[in-house]
Simulated scan of single mutants.
Amino acid sequence: MLDVQIRQRLGAFALDIAFAAEERGVTALFGRSGSGKTSVINAIAGLTRPDAGHIRVGDAVFFDSTRRIDVPVEKRRIGYVFQDSRLFPHMSVRSNLEYGLRRVPAADRRIAFDPVVDLLGLGHLLDRRPRGLSGGEKQRVAFGRALLAQPRLLLMDEPMASLDSARKAEIMPYIERLRDEMRIPIVMVSHALDEVVRLATTMVLIAEGRVRAAGPVGTVMGRLDLSAATGAHEAGAVLDLTVERHIPADGLSVLAFDGGHLTVPQIDRPPGSPVRLHIHARDVIVALEPPTGVSLRNALAARVVEVAEAGPSSADLRLAVGGSFLIARITRAAVRELSLAPGREVVALVKGIAFEPDSSGSASDPRRRVVDV
């Protein structure tokens, strides 16, 4: 487990953070700028010292105020990837990568040079200098340098914030491979919800130096009381599905989950592959009966679980769909006229799907993620 419980006074700002996450996978610290996210990972790295609390990664204790433990930065074996790559400009890519490796005794090297180069697609860049690389290439080198330092934990502070949409789409598949193949726990700071939805296994929502919620991404995103903190425009549910089959003649894919099936524009993943969808609340319509004579293909049997105000004229509905949940944003007038209350059986019509770019890592624009179906 990654176990963080710290308190720290930073000038007029007070940090009071507590969360735990599975050691494997990506833990995303999500929140608005100035909420305290970077302060948390700086404390984990040992760059700042909390006033009280503890920081533990598995069996390793990095900090414990009651036991007077404060492991120095260089002994924590933590990799840190910043917003800007911070590569050594006078060194080649190969030398930048080897810098991390040389700092670790040979007996402690469990991550080898060649597999990291292959994983991150750096082979053709080894003899080049950083100034001749694109932003995405620089970040891949930064990932490689951090990995070759043999970290027990990898920290990423807004690793895609300085990249344009095309470079961001290029780098995401590499972070997925780090998550899935290297099996090193990652803590990533982000204020971009699309990054969190695609990459994270655990989401820690931070606001004003406090943890508002922590848990699986779908669980946190499914809470109606957190829409203001996650962003009212981004309110919606996250579903984990499986590719069931493709319909090439129509350019469609059928995805299965415990609430039924969704049909989406064809995605480049074989049957049996996992897919995560972010379905925005504004793209879900609520009906009392299955509609006829409409172009919408996705109609799911649902039950109203919770109703909450979302604005002067709108309301959010949490809908149970099998063992999963959707969120719909409709007018308060519609809630009244349709007598929508907890327990009411309804039909959820999904008019738009926000889906991941294809798994090949092609530079599709993340802004084109919502497709009418």
Score class of each variant (00 low, 15 high):
A45E: 07
A18N: 09
R269S: 10
A281I: 04
S364G: 14
V371H: 15
P72K: 13
M1V: 11
L154H: 03
S273W: 07
A299S: 07
I6T: 10
L155P: 02
P115T: 14
L349K: 03
I327F: 00
H54M: 12
V61F: 14
V243Q: 05
A235Q: 09
A149V: 04
I247P: 02
D268Y: 08
R177L: 09
L133G: 09
G222C: 04
S190V: 02
R210K: 08
G53M: 12
T242R: 00
E345V: 11
G123A: 11
L87Q: 01
P312A: 15
D358W: 02
L153W: 01
V307K: 06
V243W: 02
I186V: 15
L15W: 08
S33M: 08
S364W: 11
G272C: 03
H246S: 05
A21L: 04
H90A: 06
R212H: 15
V347S: 05
R369E: 06
S360K: 09
V71F: 02
L319W: 00
I111D: 10
D164A: 09
V73D: 15
L255W: 01
A161G: 11
P312R: 13
E234N: 12
L125M: 06
R336N: 08
D70T: 09
A228C: 03
T201Y: 10
V264I: 14
A112Q: 11
L148Q: 13
S359D: 14
L120M: 12
A18Q: 13
G293I: 00
N298C: 07
L10E: 11
L224V: 09
F13M: 05
G215K: 13
L153E: 02
A20G: 13
V116L: 13
V284I: 09
V304Y: 00
V117I: 12
A213G: 08
S162D: 07
R212K: 11
R77W: 01
R102F: 01
S65K: 04
E195V: 08
R183K: 15
D59V: 01
R24I: 04
S360H: 04
A301W: 00
R140F: 14
V373H: 14
V264F: 10
R329E: 12
I267E: 15
R297C: 02
A21R: 02
H246R: 12
R269G: 06
P151D: 03
R303E: 00
R179V: 01
G209C: 07
T331I: 08
